[in-house]
Amino acid sequence: MSPEPIPSAVPSAESPEPKARPVAVPVWLIVLLFLLLYGGMVYFDRCSGWFADQVYTPYQSVQELEAMQPASGPPSLAQLGLLVYNKPTCVACHQANGKGLPGQFPPLVQSHWILEPEPGRIIRIVLDGLSGPLEVEGQNFNGAMVPWRDVLTDEEIAAVLTYVRQNAEWGNNAPSVKPERVKDVREKTKQHKQSWTPDELLKVSPAD
C-alpha cells in the first residue's frame, strides 16, 4: 500500500518554526524572586553555620557546638581512682583483676591489708613504698613496691585507695579514704624517707 503523503510534503502546510514575542517579565515575579532571595539569605544566616565545616544540623554555630560539649567536670572519687589505677600506676604489677602475680606482686583482692577499717597503713605503703618479706592471704612475697609520694596527689591517692577498697567485683567492701586523711598521714610521715617494711608497718596503728 502506498503511504499517504503528510502535510509537510507541501512546505506551506507545515506550521512555521516558532517565534517568541518580546513581552516583559511581570514585575511581581521579579519582586517574588528578590523576596525569596532575601528569605533564603535569612535562613542561611540562621541555620548554616556560615560554611563552618564542623557545624552539622541541628547545631547552628561553632559557639553552640562548643557549649554542648560534655563537661569534663571533676570526676567522682571512684572514677578518678579507676583512672589512677590504670595510669598504669598500679595495674602494671597488681594487674587489672587485682590478683597480682604469685610470688611477685601481692593481690589486692580480699587482702586484709587493704580491708582494714582504718587506712593508715596502706596510705603509708602508697606514700613511701614497701619492701621486705610480706604475707598476704597465705601467700608469701619478698619484693619491693615503689613510693608514690612525689608522683600522686592526696586526692589521687585517696581516690585509688577508695577504688581498691570498694571494688565490688573483687569483693572488697571497706570504708572510703578521704583526701584529708592522706594529707594528714603525709605530714606525719614527712621524715620517713625510705620504704616501709611489713614489721615496721605492723607497729603503726591503722588509725594513725
Partner: peptide
Amino acid sequence: PKLTRRELYSRYL
C-alpha cells in the same frame, strides 16, 4: 507554539 500555530508568549520569561 509550533503545533498551536501561535507565538511563544514571552521570550524574556
